[in-house]
Structure formats: C-alpha cells, structure tokens
Amino acid sequence: MTSATTRIDHLVTSGTFSLDGGTWDVDNNVWIVGDDTEAIVIDAAHDSAAIEAALGGRTLRAIVCTHAHNDHIDAAPALAAATGAPILLHPDDLPLWKQTHPDRAPDRELADGQVIAVGDVELTVLHTPGHAPGAVCLYAPALETVFTGDTLFHGGPGATGRSFSHFPTIIDSIRERLLTLPPGTVVRTGHGDSTTVGDESPRLAEWIQRGH
C-alpha cells in the first residue's frame, strides 16, 4: 500500500567527508518525508539553506541522522536553529558526532524499534551497526521504502575500512534487518542510486566473499 498524502522529496547536496585524517568530495542524498504541512529530514547534509528551501515552508518535525559521519550531519545544527526541529541520533554514534559538533549535542536519542510518525505514515527505526556503531535505517512500509543511509547501497554494503566500522557487523545487519524486508521495498541510500531489497538479496554471498 502507498500513502495518499505523504510523499518523498529528494535533494542532492555536495561537500566533503572527513575521517581518520583524510578528506574526500562527496554528493549526499537528503530525503524529505512528509505531506503538505509537515515533514522530517533524513540526513541534513552540507547545505542547510537548500534543505530549508526544499521544505517549502512546511513544519519540520525532526532531523533524523542515519549515522554521525560528518557529511550526514554537518548541516544539522544550522537546520535545527532555522526551523526549531530536534536532531535525533542513536547514542552509539555520539563519539562520531562529537568529532564534528563538540559543542552541540543531539536533542533526542533514536532506539531500535522506535516509530516516527509524519503525515499519514510511520517510519520504524532499525538499528543497523557496521558502517558506524549507531547506524540506523528507517523503514516505511506504507511507502514501500527503507532509507538505509550508508548501510546498504546499490551494489553492496557501506564501507567498513575506517574507524568505528566493522565488516562482519554490517553484513549481519543487512542480512537480519534489511534483506528480510519485502523484495519490492525500495532502498533509498545515503549516496548514489536507489535499489530494491530484491535486487540486492542475491548478492549477499558475493559481498561476503569479496570482504567488501
């Protein structure tokens, strides 16, 4: 089933990702879920003004962080200040958050199984550690969509070669929390193109062998 009034808006913002002494140019997907009056933002990346403009005057109910790598949270405090919306982050990612925003804590914690309501849909928080300890995905069955941040991409798992990440853990998260969703579920990612659970499921053994 799909929602009659709640829609998904997509914005791509550009900036840098920095960790472990390196910095890379990146394009990030920013997802806005809501109806004509209210919305949530999933991953406030790089450009607070552009995200605020994309909201089009709607009330922002929450800024939800899929994880705390700087490229996914760098615009969150500015967007929160402009809109009054709280920032939500899983507490296991606080050490990463503090690397970017040492003087501004998130407002609320995300927890596995928590439900976030916006418009006429509900999004369930799935704790999916591996790319980062507090990484989460947001599953919206009414929209036949899961927002995966950097846990699952078109073609494989998120990177696990840097601090705070762990390859066996991300594989467990994907196998147990994401590939168990209906095959037609659209996977909307933190970077790059969307995919579906059904398209990615057959590749699990290949990912494990590759140690990607």
Results as ranks from 00 to 15, higher is better:
A4K: 12
R7Q: 15
I8E: 01
L11P: 11
T13E: 06
T13R: 05
S14M: 08
G15M: 08
F17T: 09
S18R: 14
L19H: 11
L19G: 04
N28W: 02
N29A: 05
W31P: 00
W31C: 05
V33E: 03
D36F: 02
A39N: 11
A44E: 02
H46N: 13
A49L: 13
E52N: 14
L55F: 12
L60E: 06
V64C: 09
V64R: 01
C65V: 03
H67V: 01
H67W: 08
N70C: 12
D71G: 07
D74W: 04
A75N: 02
A76P: 02
G84K: 06
A85M: 07
P91Y: 06
D92K: 13
D93F: 03
K98M: 10
K98H: 12
H101I: 09
D112Y: 07
G113Y: 06
Q114F: 03
V115I: 15
G119A: 08
V121N: 01
E122M: 09
V125R: 04
H127K: 13
G130C: 07
H131V: 10
G134H: 05
V136T: 14
T145D: 06
F147G: 02
T148K: 07
L152N: 00
H154T: 11
G158N: 01
A159G: 12
T160S: 12
G161Y: 06
S163V: 05
S163F: 02
H166G: 04
P168C: 05
P168E: 09
I170T: 11
I171V: 15
D172G: 11
I174F: 01
E176N: 13
E176P: 03
R177Q: 15
T180P: 06
L181R: 00
T185K: 03
V186H: 13
V186P: 08
V187M: 07
T189N: 10
G192Q: 11
T195V: 04
G198E: 00
D199A: 15
S201A: 15
R203T: 09
W207G: 04
I208M: 14
Q209T: 14
